[in-house]
Amino acid sequence: MAFIIVMGVSGCGKSTVAAMLSGRLGWDFTEGDALHPPANVEKMRRGIPLSDDDREPWLRDIAATIEGWRQAGQSGIIACSALRRRYREIIAAGHDDVLFVYLRGSFTLIESRLAARQGHYMPVSLLDSQFATLEEPTAEENAITIDTGAPAPELVNEVVARLHLAA
Rank of each mutant, 00 (worst) to 15 (best):
F3G: 02
F3R: 07
I4N: 02
G8W: 07
G8F: 09
V9Y: 00
C12F: 14
C12I: 02
K14A: 06
V17D: 00
A18P: 06
A18W: 02
A18Y: 05
A19C: 14
A19M: 15
A19F: 13
M20R: 03
M20H: 03
M20E: 04
L21R: 00
R24P: 06
D28Q: 12
D28K: 13
T30S: 15
E31Y: 02
E31R: 11
G32I: 03
P37C: 01
P38W: 07
A39I: 09
A39R: 05
A39M: 04
A39Y: 05
A39L: 04
N40P: 07
N40Q: 08
V41C: 14
E42I: 14
R46L: 12
G47Y: 08
I48R: 14
L50S: 00
S51L: 10
E56T: 12
E56S: 07
W58M: 00
L59M: 05
R60I: 02
R60Y: 14
R60K: 13
D61I: 03
I62M: 11
A63F: 13
A63R: 08
A64Q: 15
A64R: 14
T65N: 13
E67Q: 10
E67I: 03
E67H: 12
G68T: 11
Q71D: 15
Q71W: 13
Q71H: 15
G73P: 08
Q74Y: 06
I77Q: 06
I77T: 10
I78P: 05
A79R: 07
C80K: 04
C80S: 09
S81H: 02
S81P: 02
A82C: 01
R85N: 09
Y87F: 02
R88N: 04
E89H: 11
I90M: 08
A92F: 13
A92W: 09
A93R: 00
G94K: 02
H95F: 11
H95G: 02
D96Y: 02
F100C: 03
F100P: 06
V101C: 03
V101Y: 01
L103P: 12
L103H: 04
L103F: 05
R104W: 12
R104C: 10
S106W: 10
F107R: 15
T108E: 15
T108Y: 05
I110C: 05
I110P: 06
E111D: 14
E111Y: 06
S112K: 07
S112P: 05
R117C: 11
M122Y: 11
V124L: 11
V124C: 12
D128C: 14
S129L: 03
Q130N: 02
A132D: 13
A132C: 04
E135P: 10
E135Y: 09
E135M: 05
E135L: 04
E136V: 04
P137T: 06
A139P: 00
E141S: 05
N142L: 06
A143L: 04
I144S: 00
T145G: 03
T145S: 08
T148R: 15
A150C: 08
A152Q: 09
E154F: 10
L155H: 10
L155P: 02
V156W: 03
N157D: 15
E158T: 13
E158R: 13
E158V: 10
V160W: 08
A161W: 10
A161P: 09
R162T: 04
H164P: 11
L165P: 04
A166F: 04
A166N: 10
A167M: 08
